Simulated scan of single mutants.
Amino acid sequence: MKLAMLLLIFPASFCILAEPCPPQAKLLEMRMQSNRMQLNHAILKHPEDYSAACIKKAAEDLAELERDWLTAKDWSSPAPEFTLPHLSSAPVIDGKADEPVWRQARKWLGSFPCSSEKYLADGSIWRLAWHGRYLYGSVFFPDCDMTFYKGRQGESWENRRIWQGDCLEVFVQPDESIPYYLEFLLSPGNTAWILDHVLPESGFWTTIHFHFQYEIQVAGHINDNGYELEFRIDLADFPPYQQRRKPRGGDVLRMTMVRMNLDIRKQEKTVQTSFYPLLHSGHNIFGYAKMILAEGKSLKNH
């Protein structure tokens, strides 16, 4: 099969889309543009012959884009906007969100599978708030077959990565105008694994640091019904604050949280869910929720 035949097999990946692109689908649009440019270049360079392996890989990539587009083109959920309460006091990060102050936090119940707008009443509990210079969060995930890994970049692949098991991913984009974001991988009994990424025009993220040094405190608790996590992230270390004032009410950041749920019963398939409808995954910065810090005491008063 000639490479040019892929134009006929996967038309949506090459045609300029006549219908408007949903805002959350911007990431897919970037990837389609990048993929089209690469294959157009290949067709011009090799109009007749192209290796079978390259054609197979191109077909697989285009098929994945085609499947994603069938979901994205009808996506109706915009990236949401929430106000994060300012807590009256700082909770202790011990893995149990049982202190009365957590009642002041923003809470979401249930979840949405990534790339789905179907709500699941699965017992998940998600909380977010802020106090002083810190972002506070807690989650509870029901789980009957918990599996946690500790492997990280640079280690043997025999040590499975944190994200390949049950864990929470927290993504934060400090400045909406800059395609730069941080990823915090959290699981019980484990220290946080922190990475930072940029999103170039290709739509495929590039990791800057695989072991980014950042102030975060995390603790977990496991019981027979599932597991719980509490975390505290230093907002004052985000780029917008490093050279100017400290966090205060009215400030805005973009973020999301994604649960990675390893289901051993389904041949170790990992299912991703979030607390609102999120297209693709936590790497889709165009789907991040807009978080507005509610009025409260600024850092200078602490």
Rank of each mutant, 00 (worst) to 15 (best):
Ala4Tyr: 08
Leu7Ile: 04
Leu7Asn: 09
Pro11Met: 09
Cys15Asp: 03
Ala18Asp: 06
Pro20Asn: 10
Pro23Trp: 03
Leu27Gly: 06
Leu27Ala: 14
Glu29Asp: 13
Met30Val: 00
Met30Trp: 03
Asn40Leu: 15
Pro47Val: 02
Glu48His: 10
Glu48Thr: 07
Tyr50Asn: 13
Ser51Lys: 01
Lys57Cys: 03
Ala63Ser: 14
Arg67Glu: 09
Leu70Asn: 10
Ala72Asn: 02
Pro78Arg: 01
Pro80Trp: 02
Phe82Pro: 06
Leu87Ala: 12
Ser89Glu: 13
Ala90Trp: 00
Ala97Gly: 02
Ala97Met: 06
Val101Lys: 04
Gly110Asp: 05
Glu117Asn: 07
Lys118Ser: 08
Tyr119Trp: 14
Leu120Asp: 07
Ala121Asn: 12
Ser124Ile: 06
Trp126Leu: 00
Leu128Phe: 01
Leu128Asp: 00
His131Asp: 05
Gly132Asn: 07
Tyr136Gly: 05
Phe141Arg: 13
Pro142Glu: 05
Asp143Ile: 00
Asp145Pro: 00
Thr147Pro: 04
Lys150Glu: 08
Arg152Phe: 01
Gln153Met: 08
Gln153Glu: 12
Ser156Phe: 03
Trp157Arg: 14
Trp163Ile: 15
Gln164Thr: 12
Asp166Ile: 07
Cys167Trp: 01
Cys167Gly: 08
Cys167Tyr: 02
Phe171Ala: 13
Phe171Glu: 14
Gln173Ala: 10
Glu176Gly: 07
Glu176His: 08
Ile178Gly: 03
Phe184His: 04
Phe184Cys: 10
Trp193Arg: 11
Ile194Thr: 15
His197Leu: 13
Gly203Ser: 01
Gly203Asn: 00
Gly203Gln: 00
Thr207Pro: 05
Ile208Pro: 01
Gln213Phe: 04
Ile216Phe: 01
Gln217Asn: 09
Ala219Trp: 00
Ala219Gly: 06
Arg232Gly: 07
Pro239Phe: 04
Tyr241Leu: 12
Arg244His: 11
Lys246Asp: 10
Arg248Trp: 01
Arg248Thr: 14
Arg259Cys: 12
Met260Ser: 07
Met260Ala: 11
Arg265Asp: 10
Glu268His: 11
Lys269Val: 03
Gln272Glu: 11
Gln272Cys: 14
Tyr276Val: 12
Tyr276Ala: 14
Pro277Asn: 06
Leu278Lys: 00
Leu278Ile: 01
Lys290Glu: 11
Gly296Lys: 04
Ser298Asn: 11
Asn301Lys: 12
